[in-house]
Design a protein around this nucleic acid. Structure first.
Lengths: 110, 110
DNA sequence: AATGATAATCGTAATATTGCAATATCATAT
DNA sequence: ATATGATATTGCAATATTACGATTATCATT
């Protein structure tokens, strides 16, 4: 029915899925990579960097922000966006955990 | 227009986004976690573990498989599913790289 | 106050996703 | 041969996502 049954899954599973989903679009990956590159947070020029219209980018930024992957603070008449390290760390740890468990298992098939 | 403009982004960005998108659903996270738990690859009982109908789970499995996150091999009249460690490692490395770069930057805002 | 620059929001069209009932497929047991 | 059990596919309804033009809001600078 087009609606995800979040209530049937654990809070952790929903949190992880939400973060990963927010990153699951090339434009949003590109935004993250750009934010990482420029280092400084004055980021009004994302629009010039990406091949998408300004409203589209604004929408992608909103989604990244909703998911908690970036933070934005008003800075005069521009907005200062930057990556939230905690969210990245959370995902990194999750994947490291999965990887570690996989490594510890003796492969007996596939 | 509802269609992602993949052609405007790098191959790497599209690959990462595709993997993350495939993981960006609680049911698929639950499937991965279950596959991790059972260790052995005979995994026909995912349907009994998750609160979703059999066709829905079959569809989620297909998406994980298309993204390259799991492998499935026919084993008589059951199917043996297991996680593809390479895909997990790829994502893990990507997030570790981002995290490392973040750590190396001196925070001056946000 | 008027102007300009920047970014968010609204509205809408096109497409994708989620979920399931019904059905199909296919290996194996009877 | 036929029934059974396991998984895949089809078809469809409900909802979500993607993208952008038009507009609006906000604020710094005239």
């Amino acid at each position: 029915m087009g609606i995800t049954k979040t209530e049937h899954f654990s809070e952790n599973q929903n949190t992880i899925a939400k973060l990963l989903k927010a990153l699951g679009h090339p434009a949003r990956i590109a935004i993250i990579e750009y934010l990482l590159k420029v280092e400084t947070c004055i980021c009004g020029d994302i629009v010039n960097e990406l091949p998408l219209a300004q409203p589209t980018i604004s929408q992608h930024l909103k989604e990244l922000k909703n998911a908690g992957l970036i933070k934005g603070t008003i800075e005069g008449n521009t907005i200062c966006y930057c990556i939230d390290g905690n969210a990245i760390q959370y995902l990194k740890n999750y994947l490291e955990d999965i990887y570690k468990i996989l490594q510890s298992q003796k492969k007996n098939c596939c």
